[in-house]
Design a protein around this nucleic acid. Structure first.
Length: 631
RNA sequence: GCCGACGUAGCUCAAUCGGCGGAGCAUCCGCCUUGUAAGCGGAGGGAUGUGGGUUCGAUUCCCACCGUCGGCUCCA
């Protein structure tokens, strides 16, 4: 094994970061440190948690002032703030939010005490007689079911309330002692959104107000700046501005169109992916986009996945379905021959484009689409190959993610749910192999007991982007179901037929979503190797265009993606255009450069490197490409 | 799918109370021949998302649909 660390030089982001990227990395690190600290002291025990929880109560009090008939649901602290769900007689507007925020801040200044009190079930029911949601919570708490946060409560049922001013809420706390511990200048209401009571689509739709609260006003400002940066990096804006991808409502929601620049990046990603797979012992396959109902009946998708599949199309009086997954097709290839244990493991990879019906409300740029390309592969092996295959695929995944600049990786192991297909012994073996692989790679991980799919345990890998947000990319997933359904077998040493193990895995998830994450991670300023245009020749006057084209040609011969800006604009405008397109190298050529056979190199970080021979520039750029750095 | 908001030129946004839809950028055409983030001038560009309704008259008010956004839900 081994050989899965590609280009060790590509550690971190390099030194010549654009200033704003550097700022954001620092901020993300800071937030990460903040998160780590929170973990250490336990966010739930922290003062910040009390502040947010208490701010939620005060907000509810302010809402009650505006809407005396308001019904209250729950109002917990969350990652960067808090929310509270209400049932109100009319929809809230932006103006309402401002009024509520103002009222809330007045209340915060009133030095309201938060007083804890335990009450009897009878008192509780009387106190909240007009609050149906609270009554439901009381009932559930008494039944030892779920608590205010919808989490399972194991403690003996105990009801408590918190009073602040004349506002009383069913709550287990903790809270600040007094509202003067909350700085009104560090509190802000953010937005209103719909939310189902207890997240259940069959229950009433409530109005949720999101707010944020911090210990110091400066932290609030920092958080607002972070939100601004998130907006600035929104891939939906950037893919348009950088002329990478578009969507067309007339032609269908959730379907991405790759423009030449985006397509070039995609090709770069896919070429890299294929090359690494070939090196890594995978074989490539291609399979059709549609399949007859037999295939989906056999796989079981028509039973349990139909709501995500598009309606069938009739061909020769038979139903054909567009594929939502590639696995059944790979299995068809497997079954073309009698397989021997000697040819296992088989590792078949495909950039397979699938279509899944997603409800209109969940579509979101490239992150959630209706047609996408999975970087899929299936590993088919014998029981005693499991251990090595799992470790191998995990290492491969980590190398892949790191190659794209994601260094912070967290693993999640999901184990056998109550209802599961396949023999428990196989589950056990599979889970252990996953666990040992994670340990062998020294990853920290969390276990989601019973969180696996019914057909097998899995490892998910989440990365953290430059803004400190985490995204699930890789999934490595055992399947004990499909080999049974398709009756996959191999002939063992003993001459008898055996059932192989099958592992699905996608490393990047889908090319579309991964691309969106890359765009946001780098804010559109990609590492040089991924840039659709790596260098732009900027002739100062028209008489320099010929030399610029000559250099452009040399760069192309050297394998660089270069273009000449022969527009009528002035140099300053050309530089501005190139900056906005985040081209890493701007090569200014005028009389001096043409004379000396050089290029004046400007980086998008705004560093001006001065003139250098073309060959020197090529060497520099090739180094950056090889190292996969930003420059 | 559900709740709410939104939809005006390729992009970002104007348009008073329901009274002849504008600007900047971009595009095109000229002039300028430029040394590190926007040179100057001119022109073209719109069924105001789609379909109905109210009205003498609808970008504006009402309804439905499509799409987008903030969430919820779902996620083999």
């Amino acid at each position: 094994m081994g050989g899965t660390t590609w280009h060790p030089a590509s550690q971190g982001c390099g030194v010549l970061l654009c200033s704003y990227i550097r700022r954001m990395v620092i901020m993300a690190e800071k937030m990460e440190v903040e998160m780590e600290e929170k973990k250490v002291e336990d966010y739930h025990e922290s003062q910040l948690y009390r502040i947010r929880h208490s701010a939620a109560h005060i907000m509810a009090a302010a809402v009650l002032d505006e809407f005396p008939d308001a019904k209250f649901a729950i109002g917990p602290p969350i990652e960067h703030g808090f929310y509270y769900d209400f049932d109100l007689p009319r929809p809230l507007t932006e103006d309402d939010l401002q009024v509520i925020e103002k009222r809330m801040k007045q209340m915060l200044r009133q030095n309201r005490q938060f007083e804890y009190e335990e009450i009897s079930p009878e008192q509780a029911k009387e106190l909240f007689a007009n609050q149906p949601y609270k009554l439901e919570l009381i009932r559930d708490i008494l039944q030892g079911g779920t608590d205010e946060y919808g989490e399972k409560s194991e403690e003996a049922p105990k009801l408590s309330i918190y009073k602040s001013g004349d506002f009383v809420d069913l709550c287990r706390g903790p809270h600040v002692d007094s509202s003067n511990q909350i700085n009104p200048k560090a509190v802000k209401l953010l937005n209103v959104a719909g939310a189902y009571w207890r997240g259940d689509a069959d229950r009433p739709m409530l109005q949720r107000i999101y707010g944020t609260a911090w210990e110091k006003p400066a932290e609030l400002q920092e958080y607002i700046a972070w939100i601004e940066e998130v907006k600035k990096r929104d891939h939906r804006r950037l893919v348009r501005e950088l002329d990478l991808i578009s969507f067309h409502e007339e032609a269908g929601a959730g379907l991405a169109y790759w423009h030449p620049r985006g397509a070039l990046m995609r090709k770069t990603i896919e070429d890299f992916w294929r090359d690494r797979h070939m090196e890594g012992g995978y074989d490539l396959v291609y399979t059709p986009h549609i399949g007859k109902s037999w295939l989906w009946e056999t796989s079981g998708h028509l039973d349990f996945y139909k709501e995500s599949m598009y309606s069938p199309m009739e061909v020769d009086k038979m139903d054909y379905y567009v594929k939502p997954m590639n696995c059944p097709f790979h299995i068809m290839i497997y079954k073309t021959q009698l397989r021997s244990y000697r040819e296992l493991p088989l590792r078949w990879a495909e950039l397979g484009t699938v279509y899944r019906f997603e409800k209109s409300g969940v579509l979101h740029g490239l992150m959630r689409v209706r047609g996408f390309t999975q970087d899929d592969a299936h590993i088919i092996c014998t029981p005693n190959q499991i251990e090595e295959e799992v470790l191998r695929v995990l290492r491969f995944s980590l190398a892949m993610l790191r190659a794209f600049g994601f260094e912070s990786i967290q693993a999640y192991l999901s184990t056998r749910p109550d209802k599961a297909a396949g023999e428990p012994a196989r589950w056990e073996q599979a889970q252990e192999s996953l666990r040992r692989a994670i340990d062998a790679e020294g990853l920290t991980y969390e276990v989601d007991e019973g969180g696996g799919a019914f057909y097998g345990p899995k490892i998910d890998l989440h990365i953290k982007d430059a803004l400190g947000r985490s995204w699930q990319l890789t999934t490595i997933q055992f399947d004990f179901n499909l080999p049974e359904r398709f009756d996959m077998t191999y002939v063992g040493e003993d001459g008898a037929e055996h059932r192989p193990y099958m592992v699905h895995r996608a490393l990047l998830g889908s090319i579309e979503r991964f691309f969106g994450i890359l765009v946001e991670h780098y804010g559109g300023a990609f590492p040089v190797w991924l840039c659709p245009e790596q260098a732009r020749l900027i002739p100062i006057a028209d008489r320099h265009i010929a030399y610029a084209r000559e250099v452009e040609d040399q760069l192309r011969q050297a394998g660089l993606r270069a273009k000449t800006d022969a527009s009528a604009s002035r140099m300053g405008a050309k530089i501005r255009d190139a900056q906005l397109m985040k081209v890493p190298y701007m090569l200014v050529v005028g009389d001096r450069e043409a004379e000396e056979g050089t290029v004046a190199v400007r980086l998008r970080s705004e560093a001006n490197l001065g003139a250098m021979p073309v060959a020197d520039f090529v060497a520099r750029a090739q180094q950056a490409i090889h190292d996969r750095t930003l420059e």
